[in-house]
Amino acid sequence: MDWPTTAAEAIAVQEELRGRVEVADVGEPARYVAGLDVAYDGDRLAAAVVVVDAATLVEVDRAVVLGETAFPYIPGLFAFREVPGLLTALEKLKVRPGLLVCDGQGFAHPRRFGLACHLGVLTGIPAIGVAKTTFVGRHSELARTRGATAELVDGDEVVGEAVRTQDGVKPVYVSIGHRVTLPTAVAQVLRLTPTYRLPETTRLADRACREGLRDG
């Protein structure tokens, strides 16, 4: 498939691929979980994938790929800037993850096909999106304790879950990407956040891509 160069082409790809999203828990619980993130400096980028042992959250593998953006910044089409570098980084891994934790949206997207959906469908690996802010949808007030949740609703559709990962901190916004259900996605995020607001996978991938950009 030729990579889109215009918004119209990119939207057409999203419309084509979103029907392939599987909303079901596929396979056994992941032994290895990967965090994915991209850092930018103008048109330069570093795409990082860091794999941890799901039981210990200890890093077991990583790959960082340097490159340049090949698609403009357009809200709702951010995946088209990030997916090529992240796919290349995934190919370089020696340890194959059983779950992708993306720093961004999955189903909680205007066309129900954010970054986590895109990567999940293209790789076949179960994927979830964990975002710092909402893109679409609203939710009721959460209790201030760790583990509190509230449905993220867009129109009459539940598109994700607001999740309080630590007492008194802002929630994160969890949505499915591919081959996972929302309750499983929420449970995974809580397991990946024993100490901080963001999953350990996200924190490690964020650090790796920033270091890659700085050192590259």
Rank of each mutant, 00 (worst) to 15 (best):
R44E: 14
D61F: 11
V58T: 14
V60N: 09
E16H: 13
L77R: 09
L57G: 10
V65T: 09
E59R: 15
Y40K: 03
A55E: 15
R44I: 05
V13I: 11
L77D: 06
R62E: 14
L17E: 06
G35C: 03
E15C: 05
F78H: 11
V51D: 08
L77F: 06
V64A: 03
E28Q: 12
G67A: 08
D41C: 07
D41M: 04
A70K: 08
V21F: 01
V26G: 08
R44A: 14
L66E: 09
V50P: 11
E15M: 09
V33W: 03
E15A: 13
E68A: 09
D43K: 14
D37H: 01
A54E: 10
V26P: 02
G35E: 00
R18C: 07
A30E: 13
D25K: 01
E16T: 14
R20M: 07
V21Q: 01
V64G: 09
V58Y: 05
A30R: 09
L66G: 12
D61T: 12
V13C: 08
G27I: 09
A10S: 11
E15F: 00
R44W: 12
V65L: 04
I11P: 00
E22Q: 13
V13P: 04
A70E: 15
L66V: 10
L36P: 02
L36G: 03
A79D: 05
V38C: 13
D41H: 10
L36C: 15
R20F: 04
D43N: 13
G76M: 06
Q14H: 11
D53A: 12
G35R: 00
E28C: 00
V58I: 10
E16S: 15
G27W: 10
V33D: 03
D43W: 06
R18K: 14
G19D: 10
L77P: 07
D37N: 07
L57Q: 06
A63H: 02
V21S: 03
G19N: 08
G35Q: 00
I74P: 06
E28N: 01
V21T: 02
A55R: 15
P75D: 11
D61E: 13
R31H: 09
A10F: 04
R62F: 02
E59Q: 15
L17H: 05
Y73Q: 05
A46Q: 03
A79L: 07
A46M: 06
A79P: 03
E28L: 12
A48W: 01
E28S: 12
A70H: 12
L45F: 07
A70F: 00
D53Q: 11
V49R: 07
V50N: 08
E28G: 01
Q14Y: 10
V23Y: 04
I74T: 14
A46D: 08
T56G: 11
R20N: 06
E22L: 14
A39I: 01
